[in-house]
Amino acid sequence: EGLCAVCGDNAACQHYGVRTCEGCKGFFKRTVQKNAKYVCLANKNCPVDKRRRNRCQYCRFQKCLAVGMVKEVVRTD
């Protein structure tokens, strides 16, 4: 048992190249599959942790990419 590289929640295994929780795994997968574009309403440096991970989708997705999650391994079929 480890911690999610994105939000610090409990994470049992790796998803898309990085140890993440189920919440961040699902968020990343949905974002890539929908080709979603998010906008940060602040300064693009919002805190992303277990308690606040749902407040800014833009910053959460940027953190997913920054920690090494790989868009190309998300299935789109």
Rank of each mutant, 00 (worst) to 15 (best):
G68L: 01
A36S: 08
Q62M: 13
G17I: 13
K34W: 05
F28K: 00
M69T: 01
C46F: 00
V39H: 01
K34G: 13
D49M: 07
V73A: 04
F28P: 00
E22T: 04
L65W: 04
N54P: 03
R55C: 10
R75Y: 07
K50T: 14
N35S: 05
G2S: 09
R30K: 11
R19G: 09
Q57K: 05
G2V: 05
L65M: 04
N54L: 07
C13E: 12
K37S: 05
E72Q: 14
K29H: 13
R30V: 05
K50H: 07
R75L: 12
Y58M: 06
F28S: 03
R51S: 10
Y38C: 10
F27V: 00
V67R: 06
Y16C: 14
G8D: 02
R30S: 08
K44H: 07
R30N: 07
V32C: 09
V48M: 10
R51P: 01
F27Q: 00
A36K: 04
Y58R: 03
K63T: 12
K29T: 09
R55E: 10
A42G: 08
Q14S: 14
K50R: 05
K25G: 14
H15E: 07
R75P: 11
P47Q: 15
C13W: 13
K37Y: 12
K71F: 04
G17A: 09
D9G: 13
L41P: 15
H15R: 06
R19E: 13
P47C: 05
A66T: 05
N45S: 03
R60I: 03
F28N: 01
G17R: 06
D77E: 14
K25E: 13
N54I: 14
F28Y: 15
G8L: 15
T76E: 14
C13V: 13
R52L: 10
N35W: 02
C40Y: 15
H15D: 12
G8C: 05
M69Y: 15
G26F: 13
K25R: 13
R53F: 08
H15G: 08
Y58G: 04
V70M: 09
A5L: 15
K71G: 08
K44A: 04
C21G: 02
R75I: 11
E72P: 14
M69Q: 01
C46G: 00
C21P: 00
G17H: 11
K37A: 05
F27W: 07
C59M: 00
R51K: 05
Y38H: 14
Q14D: 05
K44W: 07
R60W: 12
R19Y: 07
N54G: 13
Q57E: 08
F61C: 01
C46W: 00
F27D: 02
H15F: 15
V48L: 06
T76K: 10
M69D: 01
N54T: 02
K50S: 11
Q62F: 03
K63E: 00
Q57D: 11
H15C: 08
C56L: 00
G17P: 00
E72C: 03
C13T: 12
K71C: 05
N54A: 06
R52G: 13
C24T: 01
C13Y: 06
A36F: 15
R51L: 12
A36C: 11
V48S: 08
Q62H: 03
V74T: 02
R30T: 10
V70Q: 04
E22P: 11
D77R: 04
K29I: 15
K37F: 03
K50L: 06
A42M: 05
V70Y: 01
L65R: 11
G26Y: 00
F28V: 11
L65H: 15
K37P: 11
F61T: 03
K50F: 09
V67A: 10
C13A: 14
A36W: 09
K50M: 06
V48F: 02
Y38R: 01
D49A: 06
V67D: 01
R52P: 15
G17W: 03
F27K: 01
R53Y: 04
A36E: 11
G17V: 03
V18Y: 15
N35K: 12
Q62K: 13
N54S: 14
K50Q: 15
K34S: 09
C13M: 15
N35T: 06
K63V: 04
R19D: 05
F27M: 01
M69I: 01
K29P: 07
E72I: 06
R53Q: 14
C56S: 01
V18C: 04
V67G: 04
F61S: 04
C46Y: 00
Y58V: 01
Q14C: 09
C7Y: 02
